[in-house]
């Protein structure tokens, strides 16, 4: 038996690592992967609390999050391909046209 809070703390750690990756990494594909990591951490919270409250709605929400994540990955990677075609680089430091 494991306390429920362990699952939630694990999910918080994963979410924090995803945030750190989002801020530290410089490759746009890796930044996108960090966002996926954060989505996964939130899914773990949903499933753990779905168990805790004895409600299946949490798992159905996870299903919807996964579907939206799949759509997001498809569109996001298409945008990355378009950006790479235009600028010839994946480094986010070189994508600063809109920087003031």
């Amino acid at each position: 038996m494991v306390p429920l809070s362990y699952y939630l703390i694990l999910s918080a750690i994963l979410f924090g690592l995803g945030t750190a990756g989002f801020l530290f990494k410089r490759n746009i594909v890796t930044i996108f992967m960090s966002v996926e990591l954060m989505l996964n951490a939130v899914n773990l919270t949903f499933v753990a609390l779905s168990y805790h409250f004895r409600q299946l709605d949490g798992q159905i929400f996870v299903f919807f999050v996964m579907v939206v994540a799949a759509a997001e990955a498809a569109v996001g990677l298409a945008i990355i391909i378009a950006v790479f075609r235009n600028r010839g680089s994946l480094n986010v430091d070189q994508m600063d046209l809109m920087k003031f």
Binding site: M1, V2, P3, L4, S5, I9, H52
Partner: peptide, 17 residues
């Protein structure tokens, strides 16, 4: 976060297989 979580959910809310 860990402090808040472990206070919110009392230690007797266990996950049982």
């Amino acid at each position: 976060l860990a402090t808040i979580l472990s206070r919110q959910f009392s230690p007797n809310s266990m996950v049982q297989f």
